[in-house]
Nucleic acid binder design. Structure first.
Lengths: 355, 355
DNA sequence: GTGAAAGCGCTAACAG
DNA sequence: CTGTTAGCGCTTTCAC
């Protein structure tokens, strides 16, 4: 089936192409309703759909957006970010070109070229982990950075408020009565971990709890890494062992669960734990379900798209927009044990708890 | 900065636009290298990049593909599928429009209209779960269905070979010596679960093991569902209890781990388990790591794109292309216990095993 | 109220 | 070997 053109509609309706264009675009003009209807009927009859390509060439506006992302396959976060951006784009009648670079600079360069050639109306440069990136050459100045900030600024950007997230997480623990709170850190995510640690320190400070460097241990960001690191804390003498731990992420928190269980410690009775990321498949399915801090991926994606499209006026080139990370309360936080539990001693009062 | 046009390059190089076009597109023509170089230099000098929009209008080929997907935010699989499609598109110089419909029919309709208006060269209709879908109106006949098949056929499609996957999974268990093998089923994924069950039956049959209906139990697809369902099997008398279980998916397998641990059963010493999906964050991080069957999302995405773009000639409109699901061997399968382990009895020979 | 015509930036006959 | 020119399908002045 060959596409119907605007001239086909004009011929069918017995009017000029100008009239058809005016009617199709609802341009304010005093074309009588009768004519409009005739045009619309003709359009439907010939199966007319205007060509965005021709319109784009004429108006120099394509109603398309380019979204360049460094990863997409390897993280469960990508989808929510894309969904947010997507929804915002759709709401204002735009289509999005998605390019996954896998961190390859050559692919990235080509993508920028191709997207520019397509004359996208806006561009978003996204990362799947909050970090500082060197802005690639050739990006339009109006590009919005998503979940990353360009080194040296110069672009609008949105990132999670990891400091406030860490603060909220630890406040949760402080409010439950804990005073010996550990921070399960990592060296694999410099920006995010530093900010979360800052929040941790702030929460302790406002509660007049001294920051004990011994309670900060680091591991890699996996469950295994979390377990190995936290095990070192469990080796501490009873009166120095933490009664609660704030973990850099949910996966490490899973390692804490394992380490605790192997010592006969029950969560949250003997140990409270808070994670970060709110990974559905992990946090919600633990036993007990993990209290954690959610990363606002959907909201960030939406914000970036709205700013890129000019729907939202916000966005400062010199300061990243900070997006709130809400605490998701589940079952892994409780009051501290009256007396620190002895390792390897199973309690008789053990109550089963299903996920 | 205003875009440079082809005429700018022509003027700068002192040639006609034809020459520039010929050079830029490497058209076979006897333009001397000297001229070619002059044109290329001029193009670089004025910062020329050809407009895909204008070219698209002229050639009626946009080098873009539309990918409509029912979900993207809520599944960890989406990314791999997109990555596969993406990579194939990039390799043949195409850009992909991604549209996430969230299963909303109105959004889907609009997406098809918008994508057609953009004159995409090809279209892919993707689902995130293997199933049969009603093909929406307006899809071009050349559309390729990804991880789903259209009711009534008529389109090319690619889906995982769930039957063969189930067969391979259970063969794994049979090869380890098991004869009482359970199937942890679900009612939430009709197509996939039926096919996997078919594979299960086939594996048992070829090993002359009778199919025992009592060893098939169903639950919802979560860890909780898996645990609840499998618990019923653990209630069976010792000599009827399965020594191995093939689970519909990895999440349910996690429930099996939990159920087993609560009875003092150790995996794989007392119970062997095989999952399905190979969800990285789940399967690989269990203790012991879960042996499972991988869903070939990347390969399916790539296949669909290659077929849609005509890079690959395969693809039958009347039969879905079946993609192999490889077994990923990890640590959850072992020989059956010499004698069925008694529930709630901890063995002394317990050896610790880290993830 | 409606139409003619120019032109968006490019490719590809066709001439020369 | 290179240039002239006619559109691709649409929007938008400007005339009538």
């Amino acid at each position: 089936m060959v596409r119907a053109r605007i001239s086909d509609v004009a011929a069918a309706a017995g009017v000029s192409v100008t009239t058809v264009s005016l009617v199709m675009n609802d341009v304010e003009s005093r074309i009588p309703e009768q004519t409009r209807q005739r045009v619309r009927d003709a359009a439907r009859a010939v199966g007319y759909a205007p060509s965005s390509v021709a319109r784009g060439l004429r108006t120099q506006q394509t109603r398309t957006v380019g979204l360049i992302s460094d990863q997409i396959a390897t993280t469960p976060f990508a989808g929510r970010m894309l969904a947010g951006a997507q929804d915002a784009a759709r709401e204002s009648g735009h289509l999005v070109f998605l390019v996954n670079t896998d961190g390859d600079a050559a692919i990235e360069r080509d993508a920028i070229t191709a997207l520019s050639a397509q004359q996208v109306d806006a561009m978003i440069y996204a990362c799947m982990w909050h970090r500082v990136v060197e802005a690639p050459e050739g990006l339009p100045a109006s590009t919005v950075f998503l979940d990353c900030r360009p080194e040296g600024g110069g672009f609008r950007s949105v990132v999670p408020d990891d400091r406030a997230g860490g603060l909220a997480a630890v406040r949760e623990l402080v409010a439950a009565g804990h005073r010996r709170i550990a921070f399960l850190d990592t060296d694999d995510a410099p920006i995010a971990s530093t900010l979360r640690y800052d929040g941790y320190v702030e929460a302790l400070t406002e509660a007049d709890i001294p920051v004990d460097p011994a309670l900060r241990v680091a591991g890699d960001t996996s469950a295994h890494g979390g377990r190995a690191a936290f095990d070192r804390l469990l080796d501490l003498p009873d009166d120095q062992r933490p009664t609660a731990v704030f973990c850099f992420n949910d996966r490490m928190a899973v390692g804490v669960y394992t380490a605790a269980h192997h010592r006969g410690l029950e969560i949250p009775r003997d140990l409270s734990v808070v994670g970060y990321d709110d990974q559905q498949l992990i946090a919600a399915e633990q036993d007990p379900p993990l209290t954690t801090v959610a990363l606002p991926h959907y909201a960030m994606g939406r914000w970036a798209m709205e700013v890129a499209l000019g729907v939202r006026a916000e966005g400062d080139e010199d300061a990243a927009h900070l997006m709130e990370c809400p605490v998701i309360r589940r079952g892994s936080v409780g009051p501290p044990p009256a007396q620190v539990a002895k390792p390897n001693r199973r309690r008789a009062s053990h109550t089963e708890r299903l996920p």
